[in-house]
Amino acid sequence: MVIGGSIRERVARPSNRAMAWFLGLGALLSVSLAHALWFGLDGADPGHGVELVRELGLSDLALFTEARYTRHLSLADSHAAFQDHPLALDHFPTASLAAPPEHLRNPHVAGD
């Protein structure tokens, strides 16, 4: 009567399942770390981007194109409209509460 020792029962033991679960997740974590090392910024060449920056003398990312002062963040000065984020205690508190007026959002509709 081998009640306690069968393979099936050993595998069914909760802690064994937990171990398999964490080994699996740990392996995936290692894979992600290896992936980051392999394809990450440190390993990869910076690409054509750097060349273009050097060539054109670019100073900013094209990430926020919605407004002029966000397109070239580094060139914006302290008087540019930059106080409308949710945390700012603006000169004009309305800026953090109200949406920008319609004529700014849809310029071609307004003006009549």
């Binding site: 910024l41 750097v50 060349e51 920056v53 050097r54 003398g57 670019l58 990312l61």
Partner: peptide, 10 residues
């Protein structure tokens, strides 16, 4: 990484 090639002074 990209902007390290930006001009030193504008």
């Amino acid at each position: 990484a990209i902007l390290k090639e930006a001009p030193e002074i504008l």
